[in-house]
């Protein structure tokens, strides 16, 4: 709060739709603010009044217990009234729900709409149609900006910096919005980003996004400071992208031997939910190198920071 009062319009956007539209200083601002929000969640009395009287609606077209509850807690700890809307894709005719539902909600005058949708660009489309601020909680294979911010905060707190670190993002990059947002953010902050995956799980043109591409863990993990695992959806097996779980784990799963290739102090991350034994071995997920629990904690802090920054900017008050 002090920071907000000292600097005017610290976060100069009305929405958070993706990392792509953020400058390094925007990112820095949000991370600093999130750092101070961590303390709030660690108090006994975990409540601020910044958003008293404000309404936050979580509009989730894809179910996600983890992200939704993180946004819900963040809003509540800031004092907002939070409403959760889960819209099953099958229940209403696809697509029609998005704009129609949004317009309906818009008429209820929320201050913040947090949206998760299976289609890339959905959050941007909504932002054009509604009067309130929109936070993208994941749109198709496009972006998941709060995930990238929480990952960055986790790394920064563990390593003290982002610039110059070697971050290896491993797994299903093709279908991952987490990977896209992380690539954009880490590149903007001066980290060296690698992706490691079988070619069937790498999107065309990925190397032009400023990453080093590896198809073997053995080479890609060398000298890595951070190993970021991605979730492999089970349906990728049926789509002839990878032949089987055991083959995938054999070549792309993270176990002790593989982690030893990275730097001795390398840390492991996963956006969750994990498939133990598919992309990551349990001993790693639960071991001393794991930052996975820290990521969940930072998730709440980052979302508090984002909500606070957006409200502060969109009203100009306080």
């Amino acid at each position: 709060m002090d920071k907000l009062q000292n600097k005017q319009a610290v976060y100069p956007h009305r929405h958070l739709l993706g990392i792509e539209s953020l400058s390094p200083s925007d990112i820095e601002t949000l991370l600093d603010l999130a750092d101070s929000s961590v303390a709030v969640s660690r108090q006994v009395e975990k409540k601020k009044v910044t958003l008293r009287g404000r309404t936050q609606i979580n509009l989730f077209f894809e179910s996600s217990t983890r992200t939704q509850s993180s946004f819900e807690l963040a809003g509540k700890r800031l004092g907002a009234d939070v409403m959760n809307m889960s819209v099953g894709v099958s229940s209403v005719k696809k697509g029609e729900t998005l704009i129609d539902t949004a317009m309906t909600l818009n008429a209820m005058k929320p201050d913040i709409l947090v949206v998760r949708h299976q289609a890339a660009g959905a959050a941007e489309l909504l932002a054009q149609k509604v009067d309130c601020s929109v936070i993208n909680a994941g749109d198709g294979a496009h972006e998941h900006p709060t995930q990238a911010l929480l990952d960055a905060l986790t790394i920064r707190r563990a390593k003290g910096r982002l610039a110059g670190l070697v971050v290896a993002i491993c797994g299903d990059v093709m279908h991952s919005r987490v990977a896209r947002s992380n690539i954009l953010l880490l590149n903007a902050m001066g980290a060296r980003v690698r992706v490691i995956a079988p070619k069937t799980l790498l999107p065309p043109g990925i190397e032009e996004l400023g990453v080093e591409v590896f198809t073997r863990m053995e080479t890609g993990l060398k000298d890595a400071d951070i190993v970021m695992m991605l979730r492999l959806q089970r349906e990728r097996m049926s789509g002839s992208l990878v032949p089987s779980v055991r083959e995938y784990f054999r070549f792309f799963g993270l176990d002790r031997t593989r982690l030893d290739i990275a730097k001795p102090d390398a840390m492991v991350m996963h956006p969750g939910p994990m498939n133990r034994g598919v992309e990551i071995a349990s001993e790693i997920a639960d071991g001393p190198s794991s930052l996975i629990q820290a990521q969940v904690e930072m998730g709440v802090a980052v979302r508090m920071a984002v909500i606070e920054a957006i409200i502060d900017n969109s009203t100009g008050a306080k």
Binding site: R180, P203, P204, G205
Partner: peptide
């Protein structure tokens, strides 16, 4: 169209 633009937008090509 498949390629860098589709990849950036997160759209299947």
């Amino acid at each position: 169209n498949e390629g860098l633009n589709a990849t950036r937008l997160g759209l299947p090509g």
